[in-house]
Amino acid sequence: MTISAVGSDASVQPLSGVSSGVWQHHHVLDLDEFSRGDIENIFKTSNIMRQILDRDVKRVPTLRGKTIVNLFYEPSTRTRASFELAAKTLGAEVLGFDAVRTSVAKGESLVNTLHTLEALGTDVIVVRHPQSGVPYIAAQEVNCSIINAGDGCHAHPTQALLDLYTIWRRIGKLEGLKVVIIGDIKHSRVARSNMWGMSKMGMKVTLSAPSTLLLRDIDQFISQSGMSHVDVVSNLDNAVEGADVVMPLRLQLERQEEGLLPSLREFTLRYQLDGRRLSLANRNVIVLHPGPIHEDIEIASEVAHGSQSLIEQQVTNGVAVRMALLYLITRTKRGDQT
């Protein structure tokens, strides 16, 4: 493939082979706002980004002159590194704004920090925050594009997109596939975003968790949200039967301290994805995990490192998907978006 020349005005030039004409999003807040067409568009763009990542010299000047800020209010190594690499590969300036240690410690408010970043000429703010809804506040406050890199228990759309992309690359389709998401659904932004994304792509989602880690009004949530194929099967053996994809979630050890689980031992007995349980799924089942994994808690080592695990591919694909999103949203002028 070829990359077209970058103009002297440093505006974003189209990558050949990518049709982004229908892309109308200024922000990436959650997948509820994306159509199936949008998600397919992201996949196609990600394919091209994967090719760039497979080169010897992993650098194109597509986003030269753009400034991207990683505004992280929560410790993160993986997601942050992934965004940083994605932005740098596309030639953007990347500023790390580690709010845990800088302005928050001085007591600067979220809103003031956002306005400061806007005044610095930031084009895209990638925000991670321990509290749900912060990217939505950001999108109201400033004109920069906002990418939600994880907000509280609410959403983690780039993770869900890389999960979907990884499945799509491996299996070649998404429609009709059965996915089982296991564990701490209640506190998982990954689960929520995947429920939206997988539903949009016509996948069948089964949630399997102890009742203390499920959502209180999940039936109404599903019906109000128009998610047609989401169900709950609390027995993991039954849930995994016939699955094409299984995705154990990271279990935060605090959950036991909060009294939501009697013991890690009991959780492990009931909900650990091990080889026996995996054998109940389809023969070609794939295993995903949003990471970082707690080996031998929610997932057995043999499964995490087994032949059906795509956990490492997820990481590589994550960079490509984030490149695709940065590319797509910086091509949208504010006002064009729906």
């Binding site: 749900s132 809804g133 959403a155 209180r216 009004d217 109404q220 949530f221 949200s225």
Partner: peptide, 15 residues
């Protein structure tokens, strides 16, 4: 309120 909106928004509910 603890209910479907809290579930959807990822917020802790008040039952």
């Amino acid at each position: 309120n603890e209910g479907w909106v809290a579930d959807r928004l990822g917020l802790k509910g008040i039952p």
